[in-house]
């Protein structure tokens, strides 16, 4: 597989080009993940001590399943530099595989079904990795990175449970209004889920962020939430609610009634 061939192919094939752009984005995201801090000598000592203690104890009993699960949640995993490196390496492999298989399929129509299966598998891996990166971004300190995590979710075809609950968590608890606003918007495409609806209903009453309240009112109206009229009525009647928010709630009530 020569360089020009790949380049030529990329120039002509929309799918592969899109795939490549996505890979580029993933690479960028991997590179931007903050590095773990350089361990101090004290930390190293503590680690040695911990290791020794751990060794002593594992001689006595094997690590319980619970322990292991605790250590290897995907969110924690992506923060490990080693895992990040491994991710990067496997990504390279995925890239090569994608390049090869998609080149292969265009070369001849007599490709075996296994090639198709390969592609499916590779796509699945890509999707899993993207989910993992998204989850890791949503946990970042910086609001910009969390915002990026939220906008990444829109690139996941069918966001899994973990991504949706991370988005819900962001909507309800993120300290930044803009990140929450982006989250409610991202959740609009999974608004048929009952947990998403329940989460949005909770935001409607959050008087600390009127802009978010308005977005939640829109969400209720858009999804024709059966509890919508009652919630909006309560907002309209509550004197503590911002004047403009009450106006929007009134508008929502009229829309839902029609």
């Amino acid at each position: 597989m020569r360089c020009e061939e790949v380049r030529d192919h990329l120039a002509s094939c929309v799918d592969c080009r899109a795939e490549r752009n996505e890979l580029d984005a993933l690479w960028g995201a991997l590179g931007d993940l903050p590095l773990a801090e350089t361990p101090s000598s004290r930390m190293r000592e503590r680690f040695s001590a911990m290791l020794a203690a751990e060794r002593a104890s594992t001689n006595l009993r094997p690590a319980s399943r619970g322990d292991r699960r605790d250590m290897w949640t995907p969110r924690r995993m992506v923060r490990e530099p080693l895992v990040q490196a491994a991710l990067a390496a496997s990504l390279l492999l995925v890239g090569v595989l994608v390049g090869r298989t998609s080149l292969g399929t265009t070369n001849g129509s007599s490709q075996s079904a296994s090639a198709v299966a390969d592609i499916t598998e590779v796509r699945q891996e890509l999707r899993d990795m993207r989910q993992m990166l998204t989850l890791s971004l949503l946990q970042q300190q910086s609001a910009t990175e969390r915002l990026r995590g939220v906008s990444w979710t829109s690139q996941i075809d069918q966001p899994g449970n973990e991504v949706v609950s991370a988005l819900l968590d962001t909507l309800l608890h993120d300290p930044n209004v803009n990140v929450r606003l982006a989250a409610i918007d991202a959740l609009r495409r999974v608004s048929d889920r009952s947990d998403v609806r329940a989460g949005t209903r909770r935001v409607v009453g959050d008087t600390s962020a009127p802009l978010l309240q308005v977005a939640a009112i829109d969400f209720l109206v858009e999804t024709r939430d059966p509890d919508g009229p009652a919630l909006l009525r309560a907002l309209v009647d509550d004197r503590r609610t911002d004047e403009a928010v009450r106006g929007r709630a009134q508008w929502g009530l009229e829309r839902l009634a029609s």
């Binding site: 910009t144 906008s151 930044n176 606003l181 982006a182």
Partner: peptide, 30 residues
Amino acid sequence: PVTAHATNGRVTATLKQVAAGKPMAFTSFN
């Protein structure tokens, strides 16, 4: 990269450069 939110106030921003690939948000209520 900027995220700015003012509930009751104007948000004005002039960016001399934009960080590549970073999302931004500028929002106000009033």
